[in-house]
Amino acid sequence: MTDHRGTAARHTARRGPEVRCRTGVPAGRLAGVSPAGRAASACAGPAQLRAELTAVHGTTTVVAVAGEIDLRTADALRSRLTEFAGPQGASACADLVIDFGGVRFCDASGLGVLVSVRNALAARGGRVRLAGVRPAQRRLLRVVGLDALFPLHADVAGAIAAAEAATAAGRG
Results as ranks from 00 to 15, higher is better:
residue 69 I to Q: 01
residue 52 E to S: 10
residue 109 S to C: 15
residue 112 G to F: 05
residue 79 S to C: 15
residue 109 S to W: 15
residue 94 A to W: 00
residue 106 C to P: 14
residue 55 A to R: 11
residue 87 P to Y: 08
residue 88 Q to C: 03
residue 106 C to H: 08
residue 64 A to V: 10
residue 62 V to L: 15
residue 88 Q to T: 07
residue 66 A to N: 10
residue 43 C to S: 05
residue 112 G to Q: 15
residue 110 G to C: 02
residue 61 T to K: 07
residue 84 F to Q: 10
residue 86 G to Y: 06
residue 73 T to F: 01
residue 42 A to V: 13
residue 98 I to D: 00
residue 59 T to N: 03
residue 84 F to S: 12
residue 49 L to E: 01
residue 80 R to W: 01
residue 58 G to T: 06
residue 52 E to V: 12
residue 88 Q to R: 09
residue 86 G to H: 02
residue 56 V to K: 12
residue 52 E to F: 08
residue 55 A to V: 07
residue 61 T to R: 11
residue 57 H to R: 09
residue 63 V to F: 14
residue 88 Q to K: 05
residue 56 V to Y: 03
residue 52 E to H: 05
residue 90 A to D: 09
residue 44 A to S: 14
residue 111 L to N: 02
residue 58 G to R: 02
residue 111 L to H: 03
residue 102 G to F: 08
residue 84 F to N: 02
residue 58 G to N: 02
residue 73 T to W: 10
residue 71 L to F: 08
residue 46 P to H: 14
residue 60 T to F: 02
residue 108 A to H: 06
residue 69 I to C: 04
residue 83 E to L: 05
residue 52 E to Y: 10
residue 71 L to I: 12
residue 48 Q to G: 06
residue 72 R to A: 14
residue 92 A to V: 03
residue 80 R to S: 08
residue 42 A to G: 11
residue 40 A to C: 12
residue 69 I to N: 00
residue 44 A to M: 15
residue 45 G to H: 15
residue 55 A to Q: 13
residue 110 G to K: 00
residue 102 G to H: 12
residue 60 T to D: 00
residue 102 G to M: 06
residue 96 L to R: 02
residue 65 V to L: 14
